[in-house]
Each structure stands twice: as C-alpha cells, then as structure tokens.
Nucleic acid binder design. Sequence first.
DNA 1: TGCTTTTATTAATATATATTAATATTACAA
DNA 2: TTGTAATATTAATATATATTAATAAAAGCA
Lengths: 100, 100
Amino acid sequence: MKTKKLNVREYSEILKALAHPLRLKMVCGLSKKGICNVGTIAEQLGVAQPAASQHLNILKNAGVVAGYRKGVQICYKVQCPEAVKIIKSMDIDFCKEKHI
Amino acid sequence: MKTKKLNVREYSEILKALAHPLRLKMVCGLSKKGICNVGTIAEQLGVAQPAASQHLNILKNAGVVAGYRKGVQICYKVQCPEAVKIIKSMDIDFCKEKHI
DNA sequence: TGCTTTTATTAATATATATTAATATTACAA
DNA sequence: TTGTAATATTAATATATATTAATAAAAGCA
C-alpha cells in the first residue's frame, strides 16, 4: 500500500481544485463528516444543485474526492490524503463544524 | 502581535496563488532560502525575467510574499505564515532543495 | 410503463489567467 | 548626464474558469 510521492505539477493541481471558497468548504466538510450526498452538500452550502455537482466534478477530476452511487443518490468522500493534510494545516473554523 | 484568523475566502486566495507549478516552486524555494532576488529566481526556475516578475506579483498581491529593494535589485521573501504552513504540509522534494 | 427524485451534462456568457514579447522604469556607476 | 543592469509594466492572444439556466440521464417506486 505504498503511495507514490506527488510532484510539483500534481500538487498544484490539488491546490487549484481547493482554491475556491465553495470547494474548500466542500472538502473541509467532507473530511469532517466522512461522506455526504450531492443534495445535502448543495443545501448546506446554499448553492444550486448543478453548481454543487460541477464543483464536485472538478474535485473528482483532481482526485481529491470520489463518488459512489448509493441507490438514487451519489455520495462523495475525500479520497486524497495529500489534500487532507493541506486542509488540516489550515486554522479554519469552517472546517471544524460538523455540517458542510 | 496577534494575527487575525483567516476566513475561507482569504484561504482560497492563498491557495489560488500557490496553485501554479512555478509559483509553488518559488514559494518553496523562498521558504528554504529566506530571500532571493528576481533574476536569480528566474534563472533557477529556467524562465524569462518578465514571467518570473509577473508570478511574483501575483504572489505579492495575495500577500504570500513581499519584496523590498536592495540597491538595483529587488529581493523577495515569504511573508505569509499560513502559506508556509501549507507548504510544510506537503511532502515535496523540490521544497527541500537549497536552491530554487 | 410512467412518474418522481437525484444527479449530471450541456450551453452560453462573462471573467480570469497564462504566455510571450516588447517596452518602460528604477537605481547606480562611469 | 549617459549608460547599464535589474525589474516592472503593458499589450496581445490563447486558454481556462465561474456562473447560471436549461435539459438530460439514472434509479427506484407506484
């Protein structure tokens, strides 16, 4: 289970994915809550469903989160240990809250 | 000397500034080396001087670095403790090297 | 099957960023 | 002062991203 060390380009891709207030909140919330479906994420952040879906897709393409279907809904979780480390290095209140 | 805690928008601004391979290398190198002038930074990274200057300006506008004149050249250093913490949370070889 | 819920995709537009080249500014020294 | 080295600014173009709205797809249920 040895994970390969990331290079500078891969790290900057992760940073770029995190570099948006909504997505930063998403990853913070997910890293606290574990998993969450799209509708709940959208509701908690106060954004429309398509917007949430698009931002989650950006995070997924960067390898930061992963989604899996659970019946009619799709649940997302944080998948990238490097992103978790970055999040944890920040002193942020919005990350300590239970909900997203 | 109490520094105010950053909010989610301010953190995403820092992340955006760091989210470019060149700028990530710049900040990593500067956080190791302390200070460095533009010409040396450009040379070490293998980019043209205007390109280096523009990227340094982006970092400066985000509050990540600060520059001060030292005779004919301008020296930059990392100024943002939050950015340093983020950098340190990454397991990156290009950050451990002395030079930029 | 047809309906409903949940999520994803597409499209359109505005805004921002990257990249490169050319030029301007600054400070110092001859 | 004039020249030179170091850096910044401007401009132009290409590319990427954000935002919003409308529509499509997938899954389960009546």
